[in-house]
Design a protein around this nucleic acid. Sequence first.
DNA 1: CCTTCGCTAGAACGCTCTCTCTAGAGAGAC
DNA 2: GTCTCTCTAGAGAGAGCGTTCTAGCGAAGG
Lengths: 195, 195
Amino acid sequence: MDTENRIVLAMAELLRVQGYAATGINQLVRAADAPTGSIYHHFKGGKREVAAAALRQTGAAYIQLLPLLLDPHEDLATGIEAAFVAAGEQMRDTGWMNMCPVGTVTAEIADTEPALREVAAEVMASWVEQGSAYLVGRGLPEATARSVIHALLGALEGAFLLARGLRSVEPFVAAGRAQAAYVTSLSGSSRQVLA
Amino acid sequence: MDTENRIVLAMAELLRVQGYAATGINQLVRAADAPTGSIYHHFKGGKREVAAAALRQTGAAYIQLLPLLLDPHEDLATGIEAAFVAAGEQMRDTGWMNMCPVGTVTAEIADTEPALREVAAEVMASWVEQGSAYLVGRGLPEATARSVIHALLGALEGAFLLARGLRSVEPFVAAGRAQAAYVTSLSGSSRQVLA
DNA sequence: CCTTCGCTAGAACGCTCTCTCTAGAGAGAC
DNA sequence: GTCTCTCTAGAGAGAGCGTTCTAGCGAAGG
């Protein structure tokens, strides 16, 4: 793998685990096994630009998990519940590391690093776009799909946060149950969001 | 107000806005208008101990909002939906600052500051405890209440995160709608979680 | 062969960080 | 008064930060 990619991947991993401010260039140098000079050669914007690249790359990768996890289930609600449980178990099995650098970073830099916050917003917006397109494909009306994907993404990021603090899969199980019930209620007796 | 309290409050505010790693002692000194010496006099553990106190204090304060926001509504689901919308509007009106230091901090320090992570876990556990007690008081069975409060807290923290990145109230509206539908489904036709 | 150029390499700079240390102000006990 | 003790006050140490800079390696082109 080339150096540039190693740098981005190492940065993504560090952001995921400890956020932006706590991640130093020296640490990145060690993790990516690349000299300081190379980092500034490939990313003239320095630490900030490497972080932006890492957020974009992992953001694009993560949303592809949506169809991967939900396609196998004919019933959307069942698939969602299973996906949340799976995410929780994976988190537990990897020592409660947060699985989403975008989530880890957004909170801490939103008011101190405007450029990075915009990158995070861009990534999240693309999640909403692609996610709601997928849900439309699964039979939800456009407006409903947008609302559901917002709720799903929020519940997922929130579950990561709680699980990371509590070191328990319970937030994932509960979130999956709630989102499944919500989605079920949409196609059930009342279709109030459809209008 | 005495110095010790000023320090804790200033730290809570800084954590809320920019997280733990990005918050420096000098910044805290300026914000709390207290000399460096005083900080280390009151908190021998330094920055870490101040942060722990701030997390505990705001954690205790925040859970008290639950009855405050939900008591006025006879229907639990309606109250939840309204509370989410209100939280979103307040966040928008305060310039999209995250309203929860615990959430802002947990992700970034979970793997680098074990002592603080434990404090965050303590705070979150007390939220679950007090929150589920409240929901039991509102008529939910014990096990259901625990699951619901996990889902609610997760959805709330997740909505903060998304809203902070996207600078939009849409995550709050969507989360409120989803959680309301979930709670309604519990007392509706099917009581599957009750067993 | 030699030149060019993308990239590696890491020393060094100026700055900021957390924390320690010494000095003294101010209130209360006697 | 004066002794005591809590707390204020901020300069300074030592480490680490992000970034810049110069030097040179090694493959491609002529």
